[in-house]
Design a protein around this nucleic acid. Sequence first.
DNA 1: ATACATCGGTTAAACGATTAACCTAAAGGA
DNA 2: TCCTTTAGGTTAATCGTTTAACCGATGTAT
Lengths: 332, 332
Amino acid sequence: MKVTMKDIATEAKVSVATVSHVINGTKKISEEKYNSIMQIIEKYNYIPNSTAKNLRQMKTKTAGLVVSSFPDSFVTEMINGVEARARDAGYNLFLVNTNEDKKYEEETINLLYSKMVDGIILSPTSTDIGYLERFVHNGFPMVLVNRQDYNMKSIPRVTGDNYQTGYDATKHLLQHGHQKIGFIYAVRHVTTTDDRIRGYKDALKEANIPFNESYLEAGYATVNGGINAIQSLIKRESDITALFIQNDLMTIGSISMLRELNIKIPEDIAIIGFGDFASAPIIEPPVTNIVLPPETIGKTAFDVLLNKINNPNYEKNIELPPTLITRKSCGC
Amino acid sequence: MKVTMKDIATEAKVSVATVSHVINGTKKISEEKYNSIMQIIEKYNYIPNSTAKNLRQMKTKTAGLVVSSFPDSFVTEMINGVEARARDAGYNLFLVNTNEDKKYEEETINLLYSKMVDGIILSPTSTDIGYLERFVHNGFPMVLVNRQDYNMKSIPRVTGDNYQTGYDATKHLLQHGHQKIGFIYAVRHVTTTDDRIRGYKDALKEANIPFNESYLEAGYATVNGGINAIQSLIKRESDITALFIQNDLMTIGSISMLRELNIKIPEDIAIIGFGDFASAPIIEPPVTNIVLPPETIGKTAFDVLLNKINNPNYEKNIELPPTLITRKSCGC
DNA sequence: ATACATCGGTTAAACGATTAACCTAAAGGA
DNA sequence: TCCTTTAGGTTAATCGTTTAACCGATGTAT
């Protein structure tokens, strides 16, 4: 049914080796045979089977991108960055969303490995990724993106500087007189959150303000997650005067709930969100965000992976600095 | 270096066939050998090479998802839907963004085909996809998603009802007295746009209002694209009283530009956008959108593909109806 | 005249699994 | 006792390529 190289060879009355050489330009072939083979290839629309090629050559020009959540705009743009670079490099990308499911993440890595991807870019679900050790040990190219794990020093990482992100946002609010600053996040025990919390704490400490665990609030990374987080946080800590929210959808949900509660932004509560989502400038009030460059992170991650693939000894960690985009919602 | 089935077999003093049977449960193996083999597998963290398996079995449990643009929220959610179903079915997904590049689209299809994906979900860049004929002819499972091509009857499609979308949105504006309705879109000659324009035209005709080509405006599917579109449209047709905008980012850009021009929404210009993006309810005024369900479209597309993979004769086209989510921006 | 490249191919062994067909020994049935 | 199953494995072909090694003929330098 499906036409193979052998079919082409038979019809052209040459060996499959010759056909292969014609296709790959690996050996000089007489013009006569070259033309005849090419013509037959055209005639049948023959497309070589890469799986066979990959098996033989032990590489696939394929990479895996494993993210832990999805319709968050930061992750989307990051994916876009990885995809863009992959395309330029002639790589195909397996995209998998683990949905913060650690077990599924491990299965996925195994599966992608078994599919012989040349490497994997992973945004891990937890900091408990010791299971990657054996892949590292095998020389399997991986890079951590966005999130990382401080124990796995052996895997290159490309992230934003989340500590600085937490520090800068908090400092900015402190400078404008806020002392009771709520912190709304989606997932704990990932470095994106934990590092920002460290930055938050250090900024507080510098200002001699005691850290209050009760000002932290968790929620799902969705609009409703933001709504619920506000409800429970405000009920518990009604004297909060500022919020630092770690995700665009939660920020949107929070704003909507604050309005419903008749709490004015920024007069009653100032807000700093995370990530420069498209609608931020046109929301009333326009939303101040601290941002890390997701597309650059994605692109860089792929570049690093490519380097790691081509040179197993490549070692480089990249941490990109945050930028504060000041608008009205933080009251300055 | 890398441990293969042969290594396991050698160490267990059995044939590779036995190891394979143990792994796949394809034959009864004595408990003694079973345990010994399993133990060796564990010891070496042996992961079977799927590429070899795929080659032998001529299937990969892998599908391609080829979209034409990206950080648009509609596409993102659609991808999410496909990904979710793929995961449930134990499939991996190649994600490729063609960036509206038709030639690259064709190359991509070829490449994915050569990588032996079991099928492809495609959101084509144009309606000129005759090149797919040979794949169809080969019995290669494909489904068109979101966009389609009326000439390729042989490929199942899962889309929104874009004609109805254009019709309903226009009708709604007409019913509220608007006669000069601008139409901002990103790409022409794709059915999403063309069908909506047909619906727009038909609604106008029904109301005995002549169609004015000059009310249509193209732009890039970005915030800036929306900004530019408004500038050029308003300069050209200053008497427009309503807008129907085909994309979330362009809607956001448009709103921002209209504000800058001091044009009030909805008093001076009413707006209906497309797609229920997260921030729509909290923008001032909250944005009325006509929506098609992107995640459902994505999920359904994968379901159809799976059916097509398992039964080559499967034929089904699915068209999902739009819903109008009325908020303040259209003035009702 | 001798040795040596070069040209244009071919042969056959990989790559790492799966799986139909075969084999042997022991058990079961009549 | 003899024939047939069955249980538990093995052999070897196969999937569709790539590629090192080989080969014969022709040209070229010494």
